[in-house]
Design a protein around this nucleic acid. Structure first.
Length: 329
DNA sequence: AACACATATCGCGTTACTTCA
DNA sequence: CATGAAGTAACGCGATATGTG
């Protein structure tokens, strides 16, 4: 899906959160490419953002609905740097005040950590905590299928995947071209704790990261990676939801366009057949723009439609992806 | 103050591995 | 059992922010 490219642009420019540009001409409503079938198959919980204010919504990219137009305020107008600062400050404060994460209590899924790690990107103090094994995790294949990536630090060479032949101290063997990307499967308990943490805040400050890693007997880097992937998943799901939503918007506008075209044709015909009558008629259809929702509407619409949420009818509500861990049925 | 550099973190795209139908 | 698809941990890279000399 090309949306990822747009999503990156969107992020870089920090303007439109949709990562999709819906260019709709009234005359020619551009068809929106349907999402891949996989997107439709996945179970996606859609919660209207306006009707469920208490529902979990993506933390800082805040959407608000402006009718047919979707608006995006990146963290209440903050740019990315400010947003990050703000977020970090928020989290530091949270860490200070709560001092511990309630969901971390009673989690002892792994055994005691053993050994350290080396990192390419410098040594973060909390990252230098002892690494841990994950006995509850499913161990990946122990035979390397390809040379380890060039990133010598991180999880490569870590000891969280014990070797078949015992040992399992430092897996430097992975670095010298013969290693593999050792992928552990997080245990259910670990995943649950991470999910709980993610629900509270989708980014972690170093303290939280370290605490979480310690509690789960994971490396801080693993926690970091998990959160990064989790954010990516959330964004992907939201993009899929957005795609569906925009498709529906497109369909609606296309139908509206057809209706207006028909109306124009009828009026033209009427003008040809009975010009006198036509002259006495009030202006047939006035295309106006709703000031609040920026929706094109006709005078007929205004008279005809009830206005529960907007001057000219219900305002389309952008669905927000409310997610849990993705699980296959 | 301006600059260079190191470090940390992020998003994104990708890869490789695991799990399951 | 083999296989393909889906899920996901981990990686590489570039961008950005921050701290330090």
């Amino acid at each position: 899906m090309e949306m990822t490219v747009n999503a990156r642009d969107e992020e870089r420019h920090g303007s439109l959160g949709l990562g999709l540009s819906l260019s709709l001409s009234i005359a020619t409503a551009a068809p929106v490419e349907p999402p891949p079938p996989a997107a439709a198959q996945r179970a996606i919980t859609i919660a209207p953002i306006s009707s469920h204010p208490a529902a979990p919504v993506p933390p800082h990219p805040q959407w608000w609905n402006g009718g047919a137009g979707l608006f995006f305020s990146p963290a209440s107008g903050m740019d990315r740097s400010l947003e990050r600062k703000h977020h970090q400050k928020q989290q530091h404060e949270a860490a200070f005040h709560s001092h511990e994460m309630p969901f971390l209590r009673g989690i002892d899924v792994n055994r005691a950590p053993a050994g350290g790690e080396s990192r390419t990107r410098g040594s973060c103090s909390e990252d230098e905590e002892p690494a841990a094994s994950s006995p509850n995790s499913t161990l990946s294949s122990l035979s390397g299928k390809r040379p380890a990536a060039t990133r010598s630090g991180d999880l490569e060479g870590s000891d969280h995947t014990p070797r078949a032949g015992g040992g399992g101290s430092d897996d430097e063997d992975s670095g010298a071209g013969g290693g593999s990307r050792k992928k552990l499967r997080l245990s259910k308990d670990q995943a649950v704790v991470l999910e709980e943490s993610f629900k509270e805040h989708n980014t972690l400050n170093p303290k939280q990261k370290a605490a979480l890693a310690k509690q789960l007997n994971l490396k801080p880097r693993q926690v970091e990676v998990w959160f990064q992937n989790r954010r990516a998943r959330t964004k992907l799901k939201q993009t899929e939801v957005d795609c569906e939503f925009l498709k529906r918007c497109c369909d609606t506008l296309t139908e509206e366009n057809r209706r207006l075209q028909r109306e124009v044709a009828e009026l033209r015909a009427l003008k040809l057949v009975a010009p006198h009558q036509y002259a006495r008629m009030p202006p047939p259809t006035t295309l106006t723009m709703c000031p609040s929702c920026e929706r094109l509407a006709t005078a007929d619409d205004a008279a005809r439609r009830p206005a529960p949420t907007g001057p000219w009818g219900p305002v389309p509500v952008r669905p927000v992806f409310v997610d849990g861990p993705a699980r296959r049925s």
